[in-house]
Design a protein around this nucleic acid. Structure first.
Length: 316
RNA sequence: GGCGCCGUAGCCAAGUGGACUAAGGCGAGGGCCUGCAAAGCCCUUAUUCGUGGGUUCGAAUCCCACCGGCGCCU
């Protein structure tokens, strides 16, 4: 019997430190799959320890895609991720293998599940100039401009907009001559990925414990040296370096705090990040997402995933 | 034993009689999200100022006692 709705891919997500990478590799081995990373930091080269990039040993066992795409001074985006991931998914399917998307960047994953709309094309130079101008404006100024150029969007962002989203909306209007609201109303040119989504979670206390331990391990593995080497080649303001762990250690290397303080701060930031991820997952992941308890034995998790897949097949 | 200083939220801390129905920071918790997402944002968090009395129209603020901490003296 040919399944009616075989998923085109699997998605394994969850907060940082729950153990997605190792689980994904075992899953890939069991399913004859390949892994696509959905992680906004692991796309950067030279940032291995602090981004908890899957170890060489894991990468030898299963092909990993989406890692080491950029230099730390380059920027990536959800849209670009979706395009890259789609291309890779098709390649993997062409090999008659199973694409397994693994990562904690919720927005990237959602860009696959709920495709982003069309985007105005802007030449890089013009866009950079626009961003430069917009970044010089105060938040309320941005909001005033948006209210004039795209009232509905200004209304949406009003309460809790934030400069980045306000600037994005203005950039779209200014570059395309059409309001961001208009763009948001356009149907998406790409189809939604038909995937079974699994989210691994852990009781908060346990997750925090693992995060702290992992940071100590990162330090023992030479995270400080990694950061030092990065600073020799890139400015501290490079997009890739705006990452949990790196920010704090850079502060220490700049002499702003002791190493101990930096490590403690890095642990706190990671915990806060994990918390934000959980909030996002709770509300933004599809309703049919299967939640897995990360402290259960891996074999049980694999079984549960298999059950989830069977359910997906029967169309449930 | 005597003298002095201090005691405000989980932590740090402002306020030293009336707009305090007690700043701010950290931490913690919750939330937002259509191309920077490990980003960018929003909200909540002391019915009460060590305890008990007193003075006063009014006290975190003044007085007394006690408790706790710190320092100095003997």
């Amino acid at each position: 019997m040919k399944p009616l709705t075989t998923p085109d891919a699997l998605v394994i997500t969850g907060p940082t430190g729950v153990g997605k990478s190792a689980l994904a590799v075992e899953l890939a081995e069991a399913l004859d799959g390949e892994i696509i990373s959905a992680d906004s930091r692991q796309v950067y080269r030279h940032m291995d320890i602090g981004t908890a990039k899957p170890a060489a040993e894991l990468r030898r066992r299963v092909p990993h895609h989406g890692l080491n795409l950029l230099e730390p001074d380059e920027t990536y985006s959800a849209g670009r991720f979706a395009r890259d991931a789609w291309a890779t998914i098709e390649e993997i399917r062409g090999r008659r293998r199973v694409p397994i998307i693994v990562g904690g960047t919720g927005f990237f994953i959602r860009a696959l599940l709920v495709p982003l709309g069309p985007e105005p094309t802007v030449e890089a130079e013009r866009r950079a100039r626009l961003r430069g101008v917009l970044s010089g404006l105060a938040v309320d100024e941005l909001h005033r401009w948006l209210r004039r150029l795209d009232p509905p969007r200004a209304e949406q962002l009003k309460a809790e907009g934030g400069r980045q989203r306000l600037a994005r909306s203005l950039e779209v209007v200014l570059a395309s001559g059409r309001s961001h609201s208009w763009w948001l109303g356009q149907p998406s040119p790409t189809e939604a990925l038909n995937a079974s989504v699994f989210c691994v979670s852990l009781p908060q206390e346990e997750l925090y414990r693992r995060i702290d331990e992992r940071l100590d391990r990162m330090m023992a593995s030479g995270l400080l040296d990694e950061v030092r080497r990065l600073l020799e080649r890139f400015p501290a303001s490079a997009p890739g370096l705006q990452s949990v762990g790196y920010i704090e250690l850079i502060q220490h290397l700049h002499g702003d705090c002791s190493l101990r303080e930096a490590v403690d701060a890095a642990k706190r930031s990671t915990r806060r990040y994990a918390r934000r991820q959980m909030t996002w997952f709770r509300h933004q992941l599809p309703g049919k997402t299967v939640w897995l308890e990360g402290d259960r034995p891996r074999a049980e998790l694999l079984e549960e995933i298999a059950r989830g897949l069977a359910q997906h097949r029967t169309g449930e």
